[in-house]
Computed example of a mutant assay.
Amino acid sequence: MLTKKQLDLLEFIHKRLQVDGVPPSFDEMKVALDLRSKSGIHRLITALEERGFIRRLAHRARAIEIVKLPESLGGESTVGFQPRIIEGDRPDAPRPANTEPVAVHAMELPVMGRIAAGVPIEAISHVSSHVSVPGAMVSGTSEHYALEVKGDSMIEAGINDGDIVVIRESAAADNGDIVVALVEDQEATLKRFFRRGNAIALEAANPAYETRVFPEEKVRVQGRLVGLIRTY
């Protein structure tokens, strides 16, 4: 069951998606619900996501998709999302003859410490543990590694504090890519990359953090985000 504020926010997002095709910003949500800070909106968004009514799409700012609506807003039907049904192995549904279980290929990646999604921290340089990831996530010939996210500067890109991000090693990036950036050979941070002439802008996915702009020689891309692992 949703609280009144959660229901009001879900209805507001739903109406904006129907009218404009894009979700409202956190500032617009704050005004619509008459809240004094965006932290209240973050809590409501998280609650709606945990209850399965919305989902935030990774790698895109302001990307919110409504998965289902409560009865008061049109029923429990799904919106814009159809789950893929996987047959289980119930006693009354035996596995067909001449079939074998599908093996899921997994790989072990080193977790190279923590990466700041907030204020940059000391550069990553050591292996702290290992994590198993689906092989499809690390396809290709490039090397990959994982990092634990520290901070909330990328929450509107679907990256939360404590998540494990999978990084493909690369020294180049396109505008809009989420990258591991080494600043002045001292600080490592996870941010969205934009080139502005002879400067590099490192942009957070949280309006509470300002975009940082550096001369291009001060920033070195260490890799691009290719996957995310979250545990509950």
Rank of each mutant, 00 (worst) to 15 (best):
V183L: 00
L228Q: 09
I54H: 06
R90I: 05
P94K: 01
H130Y: 14
G151E: 03
R224W: 04
D34Y: 03
D177K: 09
A103S: 12
L44R: 11
H59G: 06
L202V: 13
R84M: 00
A181R: 01
A32C: 10
V179E: 02
S129V: 06
D177G: 09
R36H: 10
L69K: 08
L182Y: 06
A172K: 12
E156S: 10
A172L: 07
R230L: 04
S153W: 06
G223T: 14
K191W: 00
S125C: 06
D20V: 11
S125K: 10
M154C: 08
I124V: 15
E87S: 01
L9D: 03
D174V: 06
H126V: 13
S128V: 15
G162M: 03
R195F: 05
L109N: 12
A93E: 01
E100G: 09
Y209I: 04
D161A: 11
D163R: 12
I167W: 07
D174F: 07
D174R: 14
A97F: 13
G88W: 00
L10C: 05
S139V: 02
V226S: 03
V180Q: 07
E50P: 02
R43I: 10
S153D: 03
V179T: 08
E108Y: 07
S129P: 08
N98R: 14
L202I: 09
G162R: 11
A181T: 01
K30G: 10
E187R: 14
